[in-house]
Design a protein around this nucleic acid. Structure first.
Lengths: 447, 447
DNA sequence: ATGTTGGCTAGAAGCCGACAA
DNA sequence: TTGTCGGCTTCTAGCCAACAT
């Protein structure tokens, strides 16, 4: 299989994140529908792929736990270092769901170059300008056939074109496109006592066309050309996912594992789908994000941390928690996986629905001792021979192992020859000195 | 893994075919929705499973051809002899499709006993009494909001309760259940000039609830308790199958192959779904049907045959054709598979949409030389040793190979010890002497 | 025998401000 | 500020026979 060097897909330095598919999905609208926490790694960068997390997504979308019937894939590591060839954004054609998802083409790689890390690191820093948008959860009145849609005042003033208040009552036509590029038109009127913004004519067509119910959300955004876009986010109803009639749940899980194992064995590309609203967690993690978390967060029982969650109105807020344990989620099948290996408790009593297991890259330590354990990124090592002392194990390595004994040697970098490691100095410079980062930037963008 | 001997699921001698699932799907209604050609093997019998055909079903339901990226599974034979543990009938919960499908639990077996064949053979003979039913393709008027449903005269008289013609106009309430056990009520009236049967009140709820369009079909059947059941059969629209957002097509195909390979290696059970309306062909074939076709049909180029097809109105008719070639559909990945290895031409010029490749068990030879090549069912053979002559190869075997050289030795019976073959006499008796068959019947039903 | 159409009517969809939280 | 409701209007859904094929 081809060794992926010189892929044609370049990293998008700071743009919308991912390339768009044939149908040219609007990436801002896709992102808005996916939610504020979703952050796709850009094409051209390196990522860590967790088959275990992928499996969990399938289990969640089928409302069925992973069964014991799945064979072990002893040659499939719990995490794969991959080059992310391509990312395309999609939306279900079925109006029943209108669910957003992303297709990623991953290729396992056995070696890393310095640029890969830098590129991945830079991709984390892109703080894309959030387009103007609002999101409202629909009420019973909004979805009933009795009337229209009550637009929150601030939302109407921020997003919709200004009304001509000389009219009595002030009204205009609103035109917006959805992810399928369908055009929806609404009558926007400002009336009533007290005055309020309403969408009337056209609204019910949208509600019935998208099959919206009270509790679902609708969102409007205004793109840079002042065009209006609208999307929907359904409430967490039961996973209506009916794919069960095509493939058995067992075959699906086997398919995921076998596809990854085959790709890893041949360094050949494979395709995964990521469903941001259905998946419990992201399972394709930017390389730099992973490394920073694993090598920088000093982990200990009782450690305090914060973690981001999505709010009702599509905002974000942080909850505080404490690490209560570190253990493999599945010690039999996925030994030494870091996938959700932290057991945690939450400060607030309303935390019932929050997960009690998270992965280390999902959390932010509260007292961030960022450089306590410097990252030995590329420990150049030869294949260990049993009984032979590893003459290249460094002080960093041993310190690392004392600190995080649960992190094994099973990282998926198989072929370190000719890959000079980043020095600690370089790493720290990269973190502290944006100018250096920037000066490195043009180098790899040109290659 | 357990060796499946003594499965608890008994063969249903002649009944509705398959056991029903938890939701207790009505098997007559399921069968009517599936179509007249679908004939599920009963649980407890033995079958031949074709992974290649299974793969084709997935490709058809995703409207995507099998890709070249799928790895070879050199240890997976193109056909697996399996014990069919269980068959359950299902229907998509999603009202968007209401598609029927069957779940089968298969367990590869490496040996056969005599009863297995007898049981499978008997299951072929069950000519279930077709319940009274009618099926109509909906017209534009039937599905418009402007009116009701025009019931064909013969259908109304055959299926619906008789009207009281003393009323002016004669009318009654029709109550029918669908596969989800939902109750639908319609006003049935006989009026107009000229008089005709119509379903009025309640009909539009059904059309919009099932999202029916002109071209889709609706069918009514009356079960033995005189209850009315109704089902739908959608026109062959584009496969709206949206499972693509869960698993990539590649992963699905790999999942099928890996699941089958794993099950075959361990003689462990695995689950497949069969979608009668979406699948191009059945890929789980009753053992006896397979054997009869393979060992009894003398195959030659230019051979004339007939084959059953479904008509517009859910009937069957036969088309005539000629065998124009015999070759592997996929010589690389599925060598010596008998899956659709016959290239055929059709007599009628309207045959454009009929498949140009079929499998031998799908056709009936026109001049049936039924016993030209008697079936050497269980050639007891030891594992061949290279260079050693096979001292047990029979005359039947060599004749068989001369007749059908394309049929290799790769049949999936691995472990023939202690399996005395059925003699030719036994086989012929079984075919010609129903009383013997019946006298054998109680024997294995008790075991 | 049955698909489509125009006419008619009953009832739902949908616009409005009142009112309340 | 915004969710729900009663009042009123508009329009579509839906029943009918005529007519066509």
């Amino acid at each position: 299989a081809a060794n992926g060097a010189g892929a044609t897909v370049a990293a998008e330095g700071g743009g919308g994140g991912a390339a768009t598919g044939k149908k040219s999905i609007n990436s801002e609208l896709w992102q808005a529908c996916a939610g504020p926490l979703v952050n796709l790694p850009p094409a051209g960068t390196h990522v860590i792929y967790f088959p275990q997390g992928h499996s969990e997504q399938v289990a969640a979308s089928m409302k069925k736990d992973v069964d014991a019937q799945i064979p072990n894939y002893p040659n499939l590591l719990p995490k794969l270092l991959c080059h992310l060839h391509n990312v395309t954004l999609h939306v279900q054609a079925d109006p029943e769901t209108d669910e957003v998802y992303a297709q990623m083409i991953l290729q396992p790689v056995s070696s890393l170059d310095k640029d890969a890390l830098l590129r991945s690191d830079l991709s984390l820093k892109t703080n894309k300008p959030q387009p103007e948008f609002f999101c409202k959860t629909l009420t019973a009145s909004d979805t009933s056939t009795h009337g229209g849609f009550s637009v929150p005042r601030r939302a109407a003033e921020k997003i919709f074109p200004p009304l001509d208040f000389s009219m009595q009552p002030p009204a205009q036509e609103i035109v917006a496109r959805d992810l399928h590029d369908n055009v929806w038109t609404f009558r926007h009127i400002y009336r009533g006592q007290p005055k309020r913004h309403l969408l009337t004519t056209g609204w019910s067509l949208f509600v019935s066309g998208k099959r919206l119910f009270a509790g679902d959300s609708v969102l409007f955004i205004r793109d840079e050309k002042q065009h209006l876009l609208l999307g929907i986010r359904r409430a967490n109803r039961q996973p209506t996912n009916l794919s069960s009639s095509v493939l058995s749940s067992d075959s699906m899980h086997i398919g995921i594992l076998a596809a990854a194992a085959h790709a890893a064995a041949n360094n050949s590309p494979f395709t995964v789908f990521y469903n941001p609203r259905a998946s419990p967690s992201e399972f394709v993690i930017p390389l730099a994000k992973y490394y920073k978390a694993v090598y920088s967060n000093q982990l200990s029982l009782g450690m305090r941390f914060r973690m981001m969650f999505e709010t009702e109105e599509s905002g974000t807020r942080r909850y505080m928690g404490t690490v209560t344990g570190v253990s493999d989620l599945d010690p039999v099948r996925w030994k030494n996986s870091q996938w959700r290996n932290l057991q945690v408790g939450w400060d607030e009593s309303t935390a019932g629905e929050r997960r009690n297991r998270v992965s280390i890259w999902e959390i932010e330590p509260v007292t961030a001792p960022f450089f306590i354990c410097p990252p030995p990124f590329f420990r150049s090592k030869r294949p260990r021979q049993p009984g032979m002392p590893d003459d290249e194990s460094s002080d960093l390595d041993s310190m690392f192992k004392r600190t995080m004994p649960w992190f094994g040697d099973d990282m998926c970098i198989k072929d370190p020859q000719g890959m000079p490691g980043l020095s600690l100095v370089q790493w720290m410079n990269m973190q502290h000195n944006p100018s250096l980062t920037n000066s490195l930037h043009p180098n790899y963008m040109q290659t």
